[in-house]
Amino acid sequence: MSTTVDIGMWGVPLAILGGAIRVSTPFLFVSLGEVLTERSGRINLGLEGTLVFGAMAGYAAAYESSSPWIGVLGAALAGTLFGLLHGWICKFPRVNDIAIGIALMLLGMGLAFFFGKPYIQPVAPDLPSIPLGAWSDIPQVQAALNVNALFLIGIVIALLMTWMFRSSRLGLIIRVAGDSTDAARAMGLKPDRIRLLSTAAGGALAGIAGAYLSLYYPGSWNEGISSGQGLMAVALVIFARWNPLYCFWAALLFGGAGALGPALQSVGITQGYYLFYAAPYVLTLGVLIATSSRNQTLAGAPGALSITR
């Protein structure tokens, strides 16, 4: 083992940085998937189930093929199927997308537990990481800056999606479907088809988020792997005002704040750790209050969502 340097209190900012990079990726992918789905006019609350199933499917595929990237692909594929199922059911008249989402969340978790039994014990190959901290002599810095490729891919997707919604034809089509079903129909578009594909792509992103959990950090499959991260990420979308770039910042904030509790205990600030564990939620509340507006509720919400309609 390379001997660690005594970094004392510097451990706290370093842990927040490292935590932001390590923990944020699943939040980022799930919330990007949800932004895409909601921008097209549907809410898919079932992404927690997709995330858990993706974690299981990714781990299983990586174990069977001995390649973590095939695992990521398998997770994306499984997520796509869940998204397609959600989109297909919601196409029927008078079907409530929120209720279907909850049903699919339970289905996804149940199926993942059922098929995942034989994969709790075996050890699957992990996704490799890129040592961006190699310039430093301090092992702790090196460890904090070990960045997984999926994190970088997530940033690229966030940038691409921002550009897509702002200035591409595809982005405009999705936005029209999301803001007004009637307008989309008048333009000769098929809102159901657009939503089906958007939900499927969103599901794929949530599946990849699951693969990150089981194949990189914490890097193993078990039934408690997610502990509600998919649900938090769906809530982050409102926090991020349906903006992919804001999703990235929100995910970083959540990851970093989550690292605060363990880091403070590790430098000897041990009183009241339950309070520090609540930090992400307190932060969210604070930001929501600070950015709230008197005139407009849910600024940026797509008009055709079942909650704004």
Partner: peptide
Amino acid sequence: CQVIFTGEWSLAVKEAEATNALVDQG
């Protein structure tokens, strides 16, 4: 001996964060 409480019996991500924080402190 440095101890870190996670607050729950099974919280995979927090357990990993706690372990990293311990190793960071030597």
